[in-house]
């Protein structure tokens, strides 16, 4: 029995070794559903992109604010 098991295991080996980090199967996020927000994970993250874009805009806005702060070009270099 033990021998049989190990033979089966040996046959399965290529498959086991391949099921590694580099071959992860990321699930389809539509398979999750959240009652509280009434949508699936896929749509939820799509909405999330809007928040990210707003955050990005805030960051760029701060950049522009800094760029427009007063500054003298007077110096002796």
């Amino acid at each position: 029995m033990r021998r049989l098991l190990s033979i089966t295991a040996a046959m399965l080996l290529p498959w086991v070794a391949a099921a590694s980090e580099a071959d992860l199967k990321v699930p389809d996020l539509r398979q999750s559903y959240f009652d509280s927000v009434g949508m699936n994970g896929h749509s939820l993250l799509l909405w999330g992109i809007i928040i990210i874009v707003l955050g990005l805009a805030f960051g760029i806005w701060q950049f522009l604010l800094i760029k427009n702060y007063p500054l003298t070009d007077r110096c002796s270099m």
Partner: peptide, 23 residues
């Protein structure tokens, strides 16, 4: 303020790329 600007840009770019792979 400069730090926040960099911090936000960094996180947002990162998230967009990762969410893109996920979706």
């Amino acid at each position: 303020q400069a730090g926040m600007s960099v911090g936000l840009l960094l996180i947002c770019v990162e998230l967009i790329m990762m969410i893109f792979i996920l979706l």
